[in-house]
């Protein structure tokens, strides 16, 4: 629970504080258990190789969860993540850092809600955006306090 950000604090082009993750095979096992997704390509290397993968890969849904964390961290306790959209375009492997980033693309007030729209993405340690997406967040307003 860091410092709360307000609608008035941000403008279009504002860059959201990046979120770094260093996923390991252990984390993939934890996520498999917590989410119930036991597809073997995420923890069984032989199975992954037999499926023509370079090794075990991150669950798309884990990257989705990382991007959700990027946005709930940004929204803070007073904000609310309203929409999130993610597309799995590329594979990511454990043992490599991934970074979630985002940028505000629009701001508006609608029905009393102070809304910001964002482009978000997860990039690998080569800087490739493997998981692009968008998000809509409702932020608190200083004016409404």
């Amino acid at each position: 629970m860091g410092k709360q950000i307000y609608f008035e604090d941000v403008e279009v082009g504002y860059e959201i504080t990046p979120l770094e993750k260093n996923p390991t095979t252990q984390q993939l096992v934890k996520y498999a258990g917590a989410s119930g997704d036991y597809y073997q390509i995420h923890y069984d290397k032989d199975f992954a190789l037999a499926n023509k993968l370079p090794g075990v890969i991150l669950h798309g849904a884990l990257k989705n969860a990382f991007l959700a964390q990027l946005m709930t961290d940004f929204a803070g306790d007073e904000g609310w993540l309203r929409k999130l959209s993610v597309q799995y375009r590329g594979m990511d492997m454990p043992g490599h850092k991934v970074t979630c980033k985002g940028k505000i693309t629009a701001k508006r007030v609608e029905g009393g809600d102070h809304i910001v729209e964002c482009d978000i993405w997860l990039e690998n340690d080569q800087g490739q955006k493997t998981t692009p997406g968008t998000a809509v967040v409702i932020l608190p307003s200083r004016a409404a306090r």
Binding site: M1, Q27, K30, Y31, A34, S35, L62, D77, E78
Partner: peptide, 23 residues
């Protein structure tokens, strides 16, 4: 467990005592 698997330490998802003080 789900929050721990993501390694999201936000008290809202982990800590009832702290989360009670939020809206």
């Amino acid at each position: 467990l789900f929050a721990q698997a993501i390694e999201d330490r936000n008290p809202l998802f982990n800590d009832e005592q702290k989360a009670r003080k939020t809206r």
